[in-house]
Every structure is written in structure tokens, then in C-alpha cells.
Amino acid sequence: MEILVCIKQVPGSNKVEVDPVTGVLKRSGADAKMNPYDLYALETGLRLKEKYGGNLSVITMGPPQAKAVIREAFAMGADRGAIITDRKFGGADVLATSYTLSQGIRKFGKFDLIICGLQTTDGDTAQVGPEVSEQLDIPCVSNVRDIKDADDKNLTVDMEMSEDIEKVKISFPCLITVQKDINEPRLPSYKKAKATAQREILEFTLKDMEDTDEKHYGLSGSPTQVQRIFPPNHEKSQETLTGTGETLAGTIYAILKQKKFVA
């Protein structure tokens, strides 16, 4: 089975603030990590590879420093890695990102199964996976919480819906996005990290793509436009309560009683 896992480097912390006076975006800390949801996707892929054989490749898109997450995937057991990187890909929204990824995937190889994490912790949209599947014209099942079975043509999975679990069979090539409940990701191995330290990471830029029209990538290829960013505003009637623990408990109790939450 040829498996591809899409991974992303995300900020280590989500502490972003807008300075209320200057309107400047303040981002604390430059540390970055692999999107936590992608670890479950990787683990899913590694287990399938171990059971059914084949290769596990990973692909990421981002600035050159995002190669760190590919190295991490190597240390977990991934066989091949590629990064899609070009300044012209900057500022991409969901559509442009998924288009760029699909172009990179076509360039990278032929895969039976593409696995994505449910969502990222920075974009939080959960939309890139399904959009990639459309761009590649392959079927997709999101929200997978268990892999039931596989043969050389199909994969059977449990998809979680609001009130039901649907057992579905999906034919290769296909894309799935997996939930956090699906497994317990392994830790990267130091031995593997050392053994793969020199392993080549392929790099794809705009000129390597099948479609080299700049207009389809980055900000130019993004139909959505951010008009402005602003700190959240909470307009509510507010009261600040201070005092000792005992007084505060008494005050809260009195309000709850007045509002009929307690008898």
C-alpha cells in the first residue's frame, strides 16, 4: 500500500495578541511543532504500512524551516518526505492551500491512500483534507475513528457522525481524515532520527508544478480575503466581585438564588 500523510508545522503556542493601541499583531515565541492532529494521521499510516506493507511518505507545505516536521516523521518511521515551498505560495486560504497541496502530491507520486489529521491547531478549519480530495478527484471520508479492514482495492473505516457511526467501504485511491480517538501515536525514535538525519527531502517550488500559473497559488489564488483583524470585543453587562473566599461564595450564592438557579 502506498500511503501519503499530509503534515503541517504549526506555532508552538497560540498566544497571539493585537496591541490595542497600535493595532500591531504580537506573536510570542518562534518555536514551532508538528500539528498535534497529524501525529494521529501518521500513526494510522504507520500501522497500515506495518500490517499491509508498502511505503509511507509525508508531504508538507510551508517555509523551509517546516522541514523539521518531516525529520520528525522520519524519526517515527516515514520513508520519504517532500516539502512544497515557495514565497509565491504565501497567504494561501483553504482553496489555494488545497490546490497547492494537490499539485505537490501529483508531483510527488501515486498513492493509494492519503491520510490527513482532522484539522490543524492554527487554522482550525478541518477543510483542507476534503478540498484536496476534490482537487485530486478521489473520494474522501472525514472524521474516521477506526480502521476496520483493508485489502488491495478498498479500505473499510468507521466514520463518526453526530449521532451514529457509519461503517463505510471506500475504494483506492482515496483520502481520509482521522480523529484523535483513533490511536495513541508513537514517540519519535532517537535511533531512527539519527539513521535518517541525512535522508533527502524533496523540494517542490512553483516551477516544479504541473500548473505553473502564479495566479492559482498563494494570495492570488485565494478567493477569501481578510479585510481586517481585531481583538475580540465583549460587550456585556459586567460586575467585578472581590473579597475573601467566604464573602465571594456568599455573593455568588445570593445571585444564583435571585436568578433562581438554586432554591
Binding site: 486560504d93 483553504v94 482553496l95 488545497s98 482550525d124 478549519t125 478541518a126 477543510q127 483542507v128 483534507g129 476534503p130 478540498e131 480530495s133 476534490e134 482537487q135 474522501c140 471520508v141 472525514s142 472524521n143 466514520m159 463518526e160 457522525m161 453526530s162 485565494s222 478567493p223 477569501t224
Partner: peptide, 23 residues
């Protein structure tokens, strides 16, 4: 933004090459 909507909306948006804003 339900399990169905989260798969269907992006697939449709990609087909029409249009913007989709989540949540």
C-alpha cells in the same frame, strides 16, 4: 459545521473554486 457539513462544504467549495470560511 457538523460531521456532514464539514466534508460536504469544502468539497463543494473546491468544485466551484470559491471561498469557504469555517466556523
Amino acid at each position: 459545521a457538523t460531521p456532514v457539513g464539514l466534508q460536504l462544504a469544502p468539497r463543494v467549495a473546491a468544485r466551484f473554486k470559491t471561498g469557504l470560511t469555517a466556523d
